[in-house]
Design a protein around this nucleic acid. Structure first.
Lengths: 335, 335
DNA sequence: CTGAAAGCGCTTACAG
DNA sequence: CTGAAAGCGCTTACAG
């Protein structure tokens, strides 16, 4: 491969020292106009681009203009929205973005966390593996700039965080089901170790309690936050003697798995069984039937989180802030 | 922020030179067992991790164990599958992955291409912006290791590439529609500058020709590969005097947009109008009705591309290979 | 088996 | 306004 030109190449061709070339890039006002012109011409000719690796090694933390993003499941459209929010913000501020998908795998999360640190990012945005995520806490304790999204940490409060009011969103969804007259409502949640799975369950329980309805543990289920577990759990529930008449599904992929099972069993929605999904999808309206869902502001979460991280980077002593965004019930035809 | 320990810190604490510490990491067999033990203990105590930035600056190309991935639209589930294939391969070979979404934006693509190069990746996998993508060709001409996926380059053949047989996939889909008795079949493609949009059109045309059916230019449309353009174009087509009785939609997001319009107009699928989508989605089966679709092997494409890149990196003189994978028609209930 | 030294491509005080 | 020099954290010939 041809070698990319370096500062030295530019300096030689422009007959100045590398210091001056570097200055012309970083502090052009400190360089003589004529010299500057000559240097810029050479830069253009050679198509010189600074080597970011060398820059990063030299520049001190907080000025490297690169941040990391660690997401738990790139197959979940919710996180794709978050990614887009972070991307747009980073792009607007001229930050590079190092993005990794740890696929809700602790090993991978640890590896990527190490990589981010050793790539010397200025900070990172992530959804912790679970609420005890010790690897994230360790970083936080070293004052590494981190913003959490979607999920909080149980015993560590001094962290910037952007959450959705999951409990309230769930409460509204289940209340709506109850008001429609459904009585046996099942909750199908994601991994029990993930805070959002619990919060959505809490909202579910509170809604039942508010309407003085029994809380039946048989109807409260947790899976692994993926498509397949939605399929399997819903099938089991539908084989129960007293089967549920409505489902409240705890994430996008579970919802899709649930729909697959319901359709495979030739049940009609909402005639035979109703469903509300936590989290809306761009194609919810094209599902059979159009899905009633709780919509999380994923893009907004990404933008806000990126902004918080930016603030934290430029002002490390800034007190941490918690932000809670609302989810919104979108009524369509699935109940 | 607390400083992360460096080689020097380990060396001092273990009472050896930094050379020896470095060697203990890279060539442990060249280090005395006792010394090695001492060093490893200190490494553990300090939780030392090599600084990847410094490593990359020093190590020569092809040995840096980091590759780049540039995707055109992270909202399209097809590319998410490709991402997963690349990720899994990279993880298995212990490569880090620098991933960027250029959102089919030429400016962003150029910026990320620059970043990848200046981040000194060993090579990259990308779907070119269009078939004339000069920025990619420039890199290729400098022998930068690149593998193209999904889209080829018109005038530059010496490149590794993993494609899907789009023409054949489209041909089969449209033939199937014709065999079902549909006569006015519309094609709704993505951006006309993208090779796949054209290839899918070619397959569409060939199928019509094979069955001696007229090719009506009014029925051949291109949009911008996004959800909205599917919505808009299908609406226009359905307002035609002689409206189409079937749609062949040229990508995932267009399909979803088309469904949205069809449902909004209260038309029944396949009674009033039929549809086949190019590219299947995990939730196609849960759509209304379950969608007949041409399935591309996205995950497989990602894996193969990563493997080709790996080969190219370890053996730069390797002749380039083109790979063509088949798409598969999955028949459900939308026609 | 081990260490001193050079160097990867930059940035930035410092001196002039 | 400009250049020589130090140094970021590593790796790797080279000498011993």
């Amino acid at each position: 491969m041809n070698k990319t030109p370096s500062l030295k190449d530019v300096a030689e061709k422009a007959n100045v020292s590398i210091s001056t070339v570097s200055r012309s890039l970083n502090y052009p006002e400190k360089v003589d106009t004529k010299t500057l012109g000559r240097i810029n011409k050479v830069i253009k000719e050679l198509n010189y681009r600074p080597n970011r690796v060398a820059q990063r090694l030299r520049i001190k933390e907080g000025h490297r203009k690169i941040i990391g993003l660690l997401i738990p499941d790139i197959q979940n459209p919710f996180y794709v929205d978050v990614v887009r929010g972070v991307e747009d913000y980073a792009y607007s501020r001229n930050y590079a973005l190092l993005m990794c998908n740890f696929a809700q795998n602790k090993e991978k999360e640890r590896m990527y966390l190490d990589i981010m640190v050793s790539e010397s990012v200025d900070g990172m945005i992530l959804a912790p593996f679970d609420k005890y995520d010790q690897d994230v806490i360790n970083l936080l304790e070293k004052d590494f700039p981190i913003v959490c999204v979607d999920r909080g940490l149980a015993d560590y409060q001094d962290v910037d965080i952007v959450l959705v009011d999951n409990e309230r969103g769930a409460f509204e969804a289940v209340s709506y089901l109850i008001e429609q007259g459904y009585e046996r409502i099942a909750y199908v949640g994601g991994l029990p170790s993930i805070p959002t799975s619990q919060q959505r369950k809490d909202g579910y329980v509170k809604a039942l309690q508010k309407y003085n309805m029994p809380v039946d543990n048989e109807l409260i289920n947790f899976g692994d936050s993926k498509h397949d577990s939605g399929k399997v759990i819903v099938r089991e529930l539908l084989q129960l003697e007293k089967r549920p008449t409505a489902f409240f599904t705890g994430n996008n992929l579970i919802t899709l798995g649930a729909l697959e099972t319901i359709h495979a069993m030739n049940l009609v929605i909402p005639g035979d069984v109703a469903i509300i999904g936590f989290d809306d999808m761009p194609w919810s309206i094209s599902l059979n039937p159009p899905l009633t869902a709780v919509k999380q502001p994923g893009y907004e979460i990404g933008k806000r989180a990126a902004d918080l991280l930016y603030q934290k980077i430029i002002e490390p002593e800034k007190p941490s802030v918690k932000m809670m965004l609302n989810a919104k019930l979108i009524i369509r035809d699935s109940c």
